[in-house]
Design a protein around this nucleic acid. Structure first.
Lengths: 189, 189
DNA sequence: CGTTTCCTTGATGAATATCAATAGTGGTGG
DNA sequence: CCACCACTATTGATATTCATCAAGGAAACG
């Protein structure tokens, strides 16, 4: 018995769910990319993770969701019943593997935010994105605004902008398109 | 058929495993507390999570571990075969619930490190510890050095020490024992 | 006790946030 | 196609927070 999967499409920047929404459905990214984030009362926002093709968006299958999700690009999600998936052997293994990957990324993110300088954080972010969102050419596809990058790295848009400018000036980073870059040398320094 | 569980004891500050160690065994805290951390080449350390009674220490059941674990207090762990546990219904559900809890905490930790000031971070840390390591009396049991607190909050020991001093001076925090505190007012401010 | 480790406190400096102004970019309708 | 508008990014000047450096004191341990 296969599990019923319903596709849902989201425009760029469209909200996917809010904190407080009921969980219960399992969401898998078919194409596009999703950002997961927290918001504080005063408007501060922290992007916690970026979810890409083939990955699950969250693992909260009952109760309420405690974070937000938004489409970073035009995105198609596959929706399925969480209960059904959990009792299916193959799905359960997939879910487990996904959770493990997510835990690993989040651990790295914690270490980055806790210990690294602005330049180190941005460099690590770019490398992460190049591994997860890249075109096959090796160029970094960066479908994020400065504000989003700042909210992922825990910096301000000005600091992010200054680092981009400096690296570009120093030819460590080359702008190869409207929203694509290529890393030429060692960043971080 | 029940799964074989072997207890193992660790002294305070004893290492439990290192990054690079083979995974494969499942570890559950029977009593005590364990800290999970990352280390960089230059010695910087980030404590990623604190694992307490009844919780699983990690979820890497094959390949290599990519982080370190150390006993925060005298600790007893239960060791079991990961394979056996994963194919047991009740265990699988427990593992899933544990992973979800861990993901939730790590998300919060990311948001804290990315967006909050030193005072806010330390306040949040104390509240977290009071929820997770507290005595039934409401006092905060703090079996951690200033360095460990700093490595959890991404601050320096001096900053941590100054905040403790200030809050104690302002009677927001009361020292009720050698390593126990009580929160009296609003911290963070 | 002496020794080591941990903690506190002060003085200073560096990294990064904040504030402010300008420039660029994309989108829309005339 | 152009002109306008709103949004995003850049850049500079300044302020703030927190780290670093340095020294002394307290607690823990043999």
């Amino acid at each position: 018995m296969t599990i019923k999967e319903t596709p849902r499409r989201f425009a760029k920047d469209a909200p996917i769910y809010f904190a407080g929404d009921a969980a219960g459905r399992l969401l898998k990214v078919a194409c596009g990319a999703v950002m997961i984030f927290h918001i504080y009362d005063d408007g501060r926002r922290q992007i916690v993770d970026i979810v890409t093709e083939g990955e699950l968006v969250h693992f909260q299958f009952d109760g309420e969701l405690d974070h937000y999700a938004e489409a970073l690009t035009q995105t198609t999600l596959i929706e399925a019943s969480a209960d059904a998936a959990l009792s299916d052997q193959a799905w359960a293994e997939f879910i487990f593997a996904q959770m493990r990957g997510r835990l690993q990324r989040e651990r790295r993110h914690i270490a980055m935010l806790g210990q690294k300088s602005a330049a180190e954080r941005l460099a690590e972010f770019l490398i992460l994105v190049s591994e997860r969102l890249s075109t096959p050419l090796g160029d970094i596809e960066l479908p994020m605004t400065r504000q989003q990058i700042a909210d992922y790295t825990g910096l301000t848009i000005e600091t992010v902008s200054r680092l981009f400018s400096r690296w570009t000036r120093e030819r460590r980073l080359v702008v190869t398109g409207k929203r694509t870059y290529r890393i030429e040398g060692e960043l971080a320094a």
